[in-house]
Structures are given as C-alpha cells and as structure tokens.
Measured scan of single mutants.
Amino acid sequence: CFKERTRHLLREWYLQDPYPNPSKKRELAQATGLTPTQVGNWFKNRRQRDR
C-alpha cells in the first residue's frame, strides 16, 4: 500500500497527464520513493479504473 502523500502526488500528476513519458515516471519515482515500474503500474491501473 502507498502512503497517503504518495497517492496524493500520483493523483495530482495523473490529472495533469494520464500518460507520463519515461522521464516523468523517473521524476515521479524519485519524488515518491517508488520505482519507475511501480509508478508506471499505478498509472496503468488508474487508467483502467477510469474506463
């Protein structure tokens, strides 16, 4: 489970761009302490949920 702060950051970025490029994923991974793969999976799952 991700911390509330991490989820908030991910949601904020998702609203700006639901399809982040690899450099954005790396930047967000550094900001949250997650791996770029975890960030990518979160975005993928969130896009699925929004369908």
Rank of each mutant, 00 (worst) to 15 (best):
L10N: 04
P18D: 04
E4W: 09
Y19K: 10
K24C: 07
K25S: 07
W13C: 13
R47F: 07
K3C: 13
A31Q: 13
Q30S: 13
L34E: 05
N45K: 11
R47H: 03
K24P: 02
F2C: 14
P20K: 03
Q30H: 10
W42K: 00
C1F: 14
R49I: 07
R26W: 07
E4G: 07
A31F: 15
R11Y: 14
W42D: 03
L9Q: 09
W13Q: 13
N41M: 08
V39Q: 07
A31T: 13
E27P: 02
R5I: 11
Y19L: 07
N21M: 13
R26D: 15
W13D: 03
Q30F: 10
W13R: 05
P18N: 04
T37C: 12
E27M: 04
D17Y: 00
L15A: 14
K25C: 14
T6I: 15
C1Y: 09
T6F: 04
R11L: 13
T35H: 03
T6E: 05
E12F: 07
E12L: 07
L9I: 15
R46T: 13
N41K: 15
Q30K: 13
R5Y: 10
F43L: 01
P18E: 03
R7A: 14
R26Y: 08
P20I: 07
A29G: 08
E4N: 13
D17Q: 04
L34T: 05
H8N: 14
Q38D: 05
Q30R: 08
N41T: 10
P36F: 15
P20F: 04
R11F: 05
L34D: 01
T37K: 15
Q38M: 07
F43M: 01
K24D: 11
P22A: 12
E12G: 08
N45E: 10
H8T: 14
P36R: 05
N41A: 06
C1S: 14
K3V: 06
A31W: 07
R26G: 09
P22K: 02
K3R: 12
F2M: 15
F2P: 08
F2Q: 11
N21K: 08
G40A: 13
Q48H: 14
N41Q: 12
F2L: 13
W42V: 01
T6P: 11
N41V: 10
R47E: 02
T35L: 04
L15E: 12
K25H: 13
K24W: 06
E12Q: 08
R26N: 14
Y19D: 12
R51M: 07
E4A: 05
N21I: 05
T6C: 03
Q38P: 01
Q16F: 10
A31C: 09
P18G: 02
Q16W: 04
T6N: 07
K44G: 04
G40H: 11
T32R: 03
P18K: 08
T35F: 03
N21T: 15
K44P: 00
K3T: 15
Y19G: 02
N45W: 06
V39M: 01
Y19M: 09
L9A: 08
K3M: 11
D50F: 06
K44F: 07
P20H: 04
D17K: 01
W42N: 02
R51P: 09
D17W: 01
Q16S: 12
E27D: 11
F2T: 15
K25A: 09
T37G: 11
Q16E: 08
R7N: 11
G33V: 03
R7T: 13
P22M: 14
H8V: 14
P36Q: 10
N45Y: 03
N45P: 00
R46C: 10
G33C: 03
R47T: 02
P22H: 07
E27S: 04
R11S: 12
G33A: 04
H8R: 15
N45Q: 09
R26T: 07
N45A: 08
K25G: 03
S23I: 06
S23G: 09
N21P: 06
R49P: 03
A31D: 01
Q16L: 15
K3E: 12
P18R: 07
T37I: 12
N45G: 07
L28S: 00
T37S: 13
V39G: 00
R46H: 04
Q30M: 13
E27L: 07
R5P: 09
G33I: 01
R46N: 13
K44R: 12
R51A: 09
L15Y: 11
